[in-house]
Deep mutational scan, measured.
Amino acid sequence: DTFTFTLDGIEVRLHGASEELIKTIEELLKRDIRWEELEKWIREWEK
């Protein structure tokens, strides 16, 4: 599955994202998160 969203005018596609990761990103997007914050968060998630 591919999860697609737009952040700061950039279309982002995550391939093979888990349901948990998708739900977490959706929550972060509701908080009007900035790209830099999401990028940092995703790097931490990957560890």
Results as ranks from 00 to 15, higher is better:
R43K: 14
I10K: 10
L14N: 00
H15Y: 13
D8Y: 03
G9H: 03
T24G: 15
A17K: 04
L21Y: 05
L29F: 04
K47I: 15
K23C: 04
I42L: 13
K40W: 09
I33Y: 06
K47R: 08
W45Q: 05
E11W: 05
W35Q: 03
T24N: 15
A17N: 03
E11R: 03
R34I: 09
E37S: 07
K30R: 12
E44M: 02
E19W: 13
K40S: 11
K30W: 04
A17L: 10
L14Y: 03
S18L: 03
G16K: 07
L28R: 04
I33R: 03
F5S: 01
R13E: 15
L14M: 09
G16L: 07
R31E: 06
A17S: 05
E19R: 11
E19D: 11
G16F: 09
V12L: 06
I25Y: 01
I25S: 00
L28W: 10
E44N: 05
G16E: 06
R34V: 09
F3V: 04
I10L: 08
I22C: 04
K47Q: 15
W35E: 01
R31L: 10
E11L: 07
I22W: 03
L21Q: 09
D8K: 02
F3Y: 15
T2F: 11
E46V: 11
T2H: 10
K30Y: 07
G16N: 15
E11C: 12
T4F: 09
I33V: 12
K23Q: 11
T6V: 13
R31H: 12
A17F: 08
E36M: 07
L14G: 00
A17D: 02
I10D: 02
T2E: 13
V12G: 02
E11I: 10
G16P: 11
R43G: 07
I33F: 05
E36G: 08
D1I: 14
L29Q: 02
R13Q: 15
H15P: 13
L14R: 00
R34L: 07
D32E: 13
R43T: 11
I10F: 14
W35T: 03
L38F: 15
T4W: 07
I22G: 02
E39F: 10
R43S: 13
L28Y: 06
I42Y: 08
K23N: 12
W45M: 05
F3W: 12
H15K: 09
R34M: 09
F5M: 02
I42W: 05
I10V: 14
W35P: 04
I10Q: 11
E11D: 06
R34D: 08
E20P: 06
L14F: 07
S18Y: 03
I10P: 00
K30G: 06
T4R: 05
L21P: 00
W45L: 06
E37R: 04
K47F: 13
W45D: 02
D32T: 06
D32F: 07
F3R: 01
D32H: 12
E36D: 14
G9A: 04
W35I: 10
R43W: 10
T2K: 05
A17T: 04
L7W: 09
G16D: 10
L38K: 00
G9I: 02
E37I: 07
K47C: 06
K40A: 13
T6P: 02
R13K: 15
T4P: 02
L14E: 00
I42F: 06
W45S: 04
